[in-house]
C-alpha cells in the first residue's frame, strides 16, 4: 500500500514536509551510509525524486523507492546500465526512460543507489510499477 504525491512547484524537501504535515508526522529524518532517508522512530517509509520541474514523494508502510525522469534518450550509457536482453528492448526515448526509472527506483528501494550497479538490476525479472505522467515516467519499487 503506497501513496504517490506529485508537485510541479515544490522542491522534494518541501513536498516531503507538506506530506508529513498532512499526516501529522513529526519524526526527524536520518540517512543510511548511501544517503537513503528514513523517518526516525517511525514505521512509515518514504522516497523522493525530482526531474526538471517535477518533484515526487511516495509513502508506504513498507520499504519503497521512487524515481521520476523527463522522457529522454542517452544511448551512450546503455552498455553501462543494461543487460544484453534489456538492450534489445530499447529502441527510443520512451523505452529508455521507462528502463531508467525502473532501475533507479529499485536501487533507491534497496537503499544503495548507483553504487549497486544499474546493470545488476535486471528489470526483466522484477515487478516494478511504471506510470507515464505528461512528458515524464515515474517508477515505484516495493
Amino acid at each position: 500500500m503506497y501513496k504517490l504525491f506529485i508537485s510541479k512547484k515544490l522542491s522534494t524537501k518541501d513536498l516531503l514536509n507538506k506530506v508529513l504535515k498532512k499526516y501529522n508526522i513529526k519524526s526527524n529524518i536520518i540517512y543510511n551510509e548511501f544517503g537513503k532517508p528514513f523517518l526516525k522512530n517511525n514505521e512509515l517509509y518514504f522516497s523522493l525524486s525530482n526531474s526538471k520541474e517535477y518533484s515526487v514523494c511516495v509513502i508506504s508502510d513498507s520499504n519503497i523507492g521512487v524515481d521520476i525522469e523527463y522522457i529522454t534518450y542517452k544511448p551512450s550509457i546503455l552498455n553501462k546500465i543494461c543487460t544484453n536482453d534489456e538492450k534489445k528492448l530499447i529502441h527510443n526515448a520512451n523505452d529508455f526512460t521507462k528502463m531508467w526509472v525502473k532501475k533507479e527506483s529499485y536501487v533507491k528501494y534497496l537503499g544503495i543507489g548507483l553504487s549497486y550497479g544499474l546493470k545488476n538490476v535486471d528489470t526483466l525479472k522484477l515487478d516494478i510499477i511504471v506510470k507515464k505522467y505528461n512528458d515524464y515516467y515515474i517508477a515505484i519499487s516495493m
Binding site: 529522454t72 550509457i77 546500465i81 531508467w100 543507489g113 548507483l114 549497486y116 544499474l118
Partner: peptide, 22 residues
C-alpha cells in the same frame, strides 16, 4: 541528477580509457 552522473561516468571512461567501478 543520477542520469547526468552516469552519463559523466561513461564520458570519463571513454576519455581516459578506464572502467570506473560502481
Amino acid at each position: 541528477e543520477s542520469l547526468d552522473v552516469v552519463d559523466l561516468i561513461v564520458a570519463f571512461e571513454n576519455e581516459f580509457n578506464i572502467e570506473i567501478q560502481d
